[in-house]
Design a binder for these strands. Structure first.
Length: 467
RNA sequence: GCGGGUGUCGUAUAGCGGUUAUUAUCCCAGUUUUCCAAACUGGUGACGGGAGUUCGACUCUCCCCACCCGCACCA
């Protein structure tokens, strides 16, 4: 388990400019968070490593960036319009809403004799049946006790909008609840352009939207999220082997982010809990400050999506093997990554408190390739123009080389170290009088975040020392 | 969505039916050869939002919003 509290992480993120409440000055908007200057850099470093690992370094992966708004037929075909919703009764009296199927099923369990005495249709989960049961047995609101329940209403998790000037059912569209469909609808395009051998994959990083009933746990469960998803198109035979390979690749990526292996748990999802498109799923869970929760998913989507889209669109979505075998619809393995959750995992697991000279010190033990600031450069004294000028030179040199370099001349040197520690800067470079003259001319102090040790480094060796 | 809790400078906090709204830290401008949050001087900055009660509300009441903890939900 992680011993740092979520509250501590939230406070640090706000104070140091990683993550702010969305729409902050208006009191916020539930389930939305804004990334500040350091947060966006950290997030970008995480997603860049992902893109490099899974797209650039492979020769069987095709990156895309599909539109968030899609033809509503996409979501009808994918099953999200009907399947991405729960049947609810709303109480006209107290305005509470309840899962209709749960309510009816619970009632049936508790009232077997009443059920026997009255003629009733066979139970199923259709809206029609749920309404009949509710009316026939005069079911009451579990909250206020009044028999004032509405007929079934669907609460869909998708945000709905209208495209164009006319707002009717033909102009309905949705903010995508997953990026995956952008890849399925482009499957034919990519095959036509590149004609890759199976197996090959499509990859995408982008926003997705879910109208969660209860956003929770900081950036863990949110209404606007960023996904990094891969659809791997395969021949169905031997799917399990490839599935396991991808599970392992997911784990390797987490280790490359510096996440401790002891906090990573891969858990098979039971049939009851799987998504409507999935025949087999394994979640990769992580020990967050609020417990072990889902970080990544991997699902065997079979040929569900392409088959649905082929039927609905009327377009051929089969893959035609180059050896002349019969065309078929490829099956799909989907490794999916929650980018915001990865940011939270990285920050919360790299949070360290220790003691330096008897005083508490807080630092983020970020891997150097993820740190939003690689190096901070300081003149020892900010009121000595010769030190400042030399420090500016060094700063310009490092900035050109590394980019993510920060100028810091605030307060005294100890304060700067502590401040850089808290945002996870691996190295601080300090220019002092010894840099300017004597036997130590053109050397600087390099201070290490994790050990707090300092060493004297020649300017000519500085870049290679920091790389 | 239900139940419980919380909401005061960026952060962490004190307080009261009438205050110049406390303290620390951060931040800003200075002084100081200042290498692990040194000291000193000066400065900016807050009662989540809206109604109501009251002569007067940060304080009491109601509604809303947000966050936290349980439950439910998580295609």
């Amino acid at each position: 388990m992680n011993d740092v509290s979520l509250e501590t992480i939230v406070s640090l993120c706000k104070r140091r400019g990683f993550i702010y409440q969305g729409s902050d000055i208006y009191g916020g908007l539930a389930g939305t968070w804004d990334y500040g200057p350091l947060g966006v850099q950290l997030k970008r470093n995480i997603s860049s490593l992902w893109w490099k690992t899974f797209v650039e370094d492979r020769d069987d992966m095709y990156g895309i960036d599909a539109a968030i708004l899609m033809n509503q037929k996409v979501w009808q075909a994918s099953g999200h319009v009907s399947g991405f919703s729960d049947p609810l009764f709303a109480c006209e009296n107290c305005k509470n809403r309840f899962r209709a199927d749960h309510l009816v099923e619970t009632w049936i369990e508790k009232h077997p004799s009443e059920l026997e005495q009255t003629e009733h249709p066979d139970y199923n989960q259709s809206a029609e049946t749920l309404n009949e049961y509710k009316n026939l047995f005069k079911m009451a609101c579990p909250s206020c006790g009044q028999s004032a329940l509405s007929d079934v209403r669907q609460f869909n998790m998708m945000f709905q909008t209208h495209v164009g000037a006319i707002q009717d059912e033909t102009s309905v569209s949705y903010l995508r609840p997953e990026t995956a469909q952008g890849m399925f609808v482009n499957f034919k395009n990519v095959v036509d352009s590149f004609y890759p051998d199976l197996p090959f994959g499509m990859a995408q990083i982008g926003k997705a939207f879910r109208n969660e009933i209860a956003p929770r746990d900081f950036i863990f469960r949110v209404r606007e999220l960023e996904q990094m998803e891969i659809e791997v198109f395969i021949e169905p035979a031997g799917w399990r082997e490839q599935f396991d390979t991808w599970l392992e690749l997911q784990k390797q990526y987490l280790l490359a982010l510096g996440l401790p292996e002891s906090r990573i748990h891969q858990v098979e999802i039971g049939p009851e809990d799987r998504a409507h498109y999935s025949e087999y799923s394994v979640d990769t869970e992580f020990d967050f400050p609020f417990g072990q929760k889902e970080l990544l998913g991997c699902a065997y989507r079979t040929d569900y999506d392409l088959t649905k889209h082929q039927a609905a669109s009327g377009k051929h979505l089969e893959y035609r093997p180059k050896n002349g075998d019969a065309p078929f619809i490829p099956h799909v393995i989907e490794p999916t990554f929650g980018l915001d959750r990865l940011v939270l995992a990285v920050i919360s697991s790299s949070y360290v408190e220790d003691e330096v000279n008897g005083e508490k010190r807080t630092y983020l033990k970020l891997p150097i390739h993820l740190a939003p600031v690689k190096v901070a450069v300081s003149p020892l004294l900010k009121n000595k123009p010769e030190l400042v000028a030399k420090a500016r030179e060094v700063y310009a040199l490092l900035k050109k080389e590394f980019g993510a370099v920060m100028w810091d001349d605030n307060g005294n040197i100890g304060k700067r170290y502590r401040r850089q520690d808290e945002i996870g800067t691996p190295y601080c470079v300090v220019i002092d009088f010894d840099t300017l003259e004597g036997a130590t001319i053109d050397t600087v102090t390099v201070r290490n975040r994790d050990t707090t040790e300092q060493e004297r480094v020649k300017l000519s060796d500085l870049i290679s020392r920091l790389r």
